[in-house]
Amino acid sequence: MDSEGTQQAHLVLAHKRFLLTHPDVQDIEKVGLKGEVFSMVKAHDMASFYETLVAESVLEMDQSVLDSMRTKIEDELKKLDDKIADAEENLGESEVREAHLAKSLFYIQIGDKEKALEQLKVTESKTVAVGQKMDLVFYTLQLGFFYMDFDLISKSIDKAKSLFEEGGDWERKNRLKVYEGLYCMSTRNFKKAASLFLDSISTFTTYELFPYDTFIFYTVLTSIISLDRVSLKQKVVDAPEILTVIGKIPYLSEFLNSLYDCQYKSFFSAFGEKRSDACAVI
Rank of each mutant, 00 (worst) to 15 (best):
M1I: 10
S3Q: 13
G5S: 08
T6V: 15
Q8G: 07
V12G: 01
H15S: 08
K16C: 04
K16L: 10
R17H: 02
R17T: 10
R17Q: 15
L19H: 05
L20P: 07
P23I: 08
D27E: 15
K30W: 11
G32C: 09
K34F: 07
G35A: 08
G35K: 10
F38V: 13
S39N: 13
Y50M: 11
E51H: 11
S57H: 15
L59P: 02
E60W: 01
V65L: 14
L66Q: 06
L66F: 02
S68Y: 06
K72C: 00
I73A: 00
L77W: 03
L77Y: 02
L77R: 04
D81Y: 03
K83P: 01
A85T: 05
A85I: 00
D86P: 00
A87H: 05
E89D: 14
R97W: 01
E98Q: 06
A99L: 01
A102P: 00
K103C: 02
Y107C: 07
I108V: 09
D112F: 01
K113E: 08
E114W: 08
K115Y: 06
A116N: 05
L117T: 09
E118C: 11
L120W: 13
T123H: 05
T123K: 08
A129P: 01
K133F: 05
M134G: 10
V137H: 06
F138H: 02
L141Q: 03
G144I: 04
M148N: 15
F150T: 13
L152G: 07
I157S: 06
L163I: 09
E166R: 14
D169H: 10
E171S: 08
R172Y: 11
R172A: 13
V178I: 15
G181I: 07
T187S: 04
T187W: 12
R188W: 15
K192E: 13
A193C: 11
L196Y: 04
L198Q: 11
I201C: 09
I201Q: 08
T205Q: 11
T206W: 06
F210E: 02
F215A: 09
I216K: 02
I216N: 02
V220W: 02
L221M: 11
T222S: 12
R229E: 15
K235E: 10
A239R: 12
E241W: 00
L243A: 05
L243G: 01
K248H: 06
K248I: 00
P250F: 02
P250W: 02
E254G: 04
F255C: 02
L256A: 05
N257S: 09
C262H: 00
Q263N: 10
K265H: 09
K265E: 13
F268M: 05
G272S: 07
G272N: 09
R275E: 11
D277N: 15
A278H: 09
C279M: 03
V281T: 11
I282A: 05
